[in-house]
């Protein structure tokens, strides 16, 4: 084969390189730059090597935030995925009510995150919030600003309310792609409802479910706005997730070095977990035959 060699073709890639450079590489490099230096102000910097990374790895505060973060993500995945599938299975397949449900399900997804936070912040208030007030009247000692369990419950329920729709809509799309013949064949084969789910619906949904899990994991792992608005990370540090802690460190305390090292490690953790997800997903697809 005769290939024409024309080095000028590189120019065609240039715009993308420039765009990615400005949008991702340069900002990231600034963070890298901060993470290996120290300053006492006046824009004077000292070389600090890997000290900040060492500090952060030894910092109990970071490990605690990471722990809380993992617990939070696990809980919301454990609730939202099964609940989303359950909702999708029970949605009407076609007609007016199908469209109605779709619109209804999409609504929470359209609300800006800080508004979601505000809604729940007010909703849960014992003095004026519908939820808080009713619970108080029922004699439940509910107070998300003082009780750790209440704060966690509020943040989790809020996230479930906000994002279960996403899982449900993706699962619904997966279900809709199953031809009728599969259900008919299952009836002919006298399969139980559970077997229809296990051998037809679940395998057909597997692809979109992996995407849903990945999206929900990444999003929940980086959650900031909603818990910040509702609890501000409290009571104490009970709902201080990684992002909240990071912002406290970077902007609250203006510890640029540690915050930069922290965010780089944060980034690597997300990258690592996403990579694992991706590998598992592609391997599932390749598991064909033999």
């Amino acid at each position: 084969m005769n290939k024409t060699v024309n080095q000028k073709a590189w120019f065609l890639v240039l715009p993308v390189l420039i765009l990615v450079g400005f949008s991702a590489v340069i900002p990231l490099m600034t963070v890298v730059n901060y993470s290996v230096q120290d300053t006492f102000g006046n824009n004077v910097f000292f070389w600090a090597g890997l000290d900040w990374f060492r500090d952060m790895l030894e910092s109990e505060r970071m490990w605690n935030a990471l722990g809380r973060q993992l617990v939070f993500s696990s809980i919301i995945l454990a609730i939202e995925v099964p609940l989303g599938i359950f909702v999708a299975l029970n949605m009407p397949k076609k007609g007016f009510w199908a469209s109605f449900c779709l619109v209804l399900m999409s609504l929470p997804l359209l609300i800006p995150w800080n508004v979601v936070g505000t809604i729940w912040q007010i909703f849960g208030r014992v003095d004026i919030g519908l939820l808080g007030y009713v619970l108080a009247k029922l004699g439940v000692n509910y107070n998300y600003t003082q009780n750790v369990i209440d704060a966690w419950a509020t943040v989790i329920i809020m996230d479930v309310w906000h994002w279960t729709s996403l899982v449900a809509l993706l699962a619904y799309a997966g279900l809709q792609s199953i031809p009728d013949a599969y259900y008919q064949a299952a009836k002919i084969d006298q399969a139980s409802r559970w077997k229809v789910f296990r051998f037809i619906e679940l395998p057909k949904m597997a692809g979109v479910l992996m995407i849903a899990i990945l999206l929900r994991f990444m999003d929940s792992f980086m959650i900031y706005t909603e818990p910040f608005v509702v609890t501000g990370g409290g009571p104490g540090n009970a709902t201080t997730f990684l992002s909240i802690d990071l912002v406290k460190m970077a902007l609250g305390q203006f510890d640029l070095g540690p915050a930069a090292a922290f965010s780089l490690m944060y980034f690597l953790v997300i990258l690592l977990i996403s990579w694992v997800f991706y590998t598992v997903m592609t391997n599932l697809d390749k598991r064909d035959g033999v």
């Binding site: 031809p179 013949a181 599969y182 009836k187 002919i188 084969d189 051998f199 037809i200 057909k204």
Partner: peptide, 29 residues
């Protein structure tokens, strides 16, 4: 219902249970 009639039906387009082996597919009914 279909199950009570105990009828076998084969459709125009193939329906197999992807996650099962060929043998498990045949054994399913």
């Amino acid at each position: 219902p279909t199950a009570e009639r105990n009828i076998a039906q084969v459709f125009q387009f193939p329906v197999v249970y992807d996650t099962m082996t060929v043998g498990e597919n045949l054994a399913f009914p």
